[in-house]
Computed example of a mutant assay.
Amino acid sequence: MTTVLAVANQKGGVAKTTTVASLGAALSALGRRVLVVDLDPQGCLTFSLGHNPDRLERSVHEVLLGEAEAKDVLLDTEEGMSLLPATIDLAGAEAMLLMKPGREYALKRALATLEGAFDVIVVDCPPSLGVLTLNGLTAAHSVLVPLQCETLAHRGVGQLLRTVREVKQITNPDLDLLGALPTLYDSRTTHSRDVLADVSDRYDLPVLSPPIPRTVRFAEASASGATVLAGRRNKGAEAYRELARNLVGYWSGESELEVLDQLITE
């Protein structure tokens, strides 16, 4: 069975797209057949994986509106993943979907046509809580929340968690909230630990291990059209590889997800 993971946070700048690309590459390196889905009209995931959104004739926009089959829009990437890309046209899809019955299920219907073709599908939700994000959460089996380890980074987390609860009540009762993934983490400061402890206490939200460290390698990788795993070994790539191993063990039922309780309480 294909596992669908939504990566969501309505706050921008939290390394959400980096997480989708890097985690997808790490899962692919473990031998999984991986599809990453760009649901952001800005097309940042599409661009970071080496494709120019401005030059694409078809994207997830046409798929969501029923004008194209998902299998006919897929693109290859250098690291073995498949990509369902986005273009700026997707900005208009939200308004058009609002007029359609069952609008929250458009992505789920589209991905159902790919059942068996992939082991894992990772969805990059846009930085909002609109119809596109609802589509990502409705289609997913689980959701991961990247969280920047800086002051006020948790603003909006409560609203996102309310949205997740509503999705579970209305469109996707089996949605599994995995927890928050610390990003842009600086282990040298107590500030990062304080932010994570606040989120854990305030929202009773698991904080997953390992934290993703702050490193310039992420920006360099995006500019080159590849992920951080494609270059020299670095701490960012190793963190995503460890996260991928943890998720594979969790999805297979072999282990529990690792959390950061010890780090937070130190």
Rank of each mutant, 00 (worst) to 15 (best):
L5F: 05
P85R: 03
L137M: 08
Y250H: 13
A139R: 01
T77W: 00
Q10F: 00
A197C: 10
E79G: 13
Y203G: 11
A140E: 01
S252E: 12
L263K: 01
L49V: 02
A140D: 11
H51W: 03
V164Q: 00
S224G: 10
K168F: 06
L161E: 11
G136Y: 04
G24T: 03
Q159G: 15
T189C: 13
S192C: 15
G50Y: 03
L181H: 05
D174S: 14
L160Y: 01
N234F: 10
E115G: 12
L98D: 13
V73F: 12
L177K: 03
L56I: 05
V164S: 05
L184T: 07
M1G: 11
V20D: 03
W251R: 10
S222Q: 15
E266A: 15
D194H: 14
E220Y: 02
D89K: 14
L132R: 02
T77P: 05
A15Y: 06
T2E: 02
L205C: 04
V4S: 05
L107I: 04
L75T: 02
P126K: 01
S142G: 14
H51L: 00
A106Y: 06
A197S: 13
V143H: 04
L177Y: 01
K100N: 06
V131N: 08
L177N: 01
K16S: 12
P210C: 11
L65P: 01
Y203D: 11
L247Y: 05
G253I: 09
E238C: 10
L181K: 00
E220R: 10
S200T: 08
L134R: 05
G43Y: 05
E220I: 09
E254G: 06
S22R: 06
E150Q: 15
L229Y: 09
E256I: 02
L5C: 09
Y203L: 04
D40R: 09
E166A: 15
P213S: 14
A223F: 07
E67S: 12
V34R: 08
G249Y: 00
T18F: 04
V195R: 01
R214K: 15
N234A: 13
L178E: 07
T151L: 15
Y105I: 08
L114C: 12
T151E: 15
Q10L: 04
P127R: 14
H51I: 04
L132I: 15
E78L: 11
R214N: 07
I212R: 00
E242L: 14
R32N: 11
T183V: 05
V131R: 06
N234V: 07
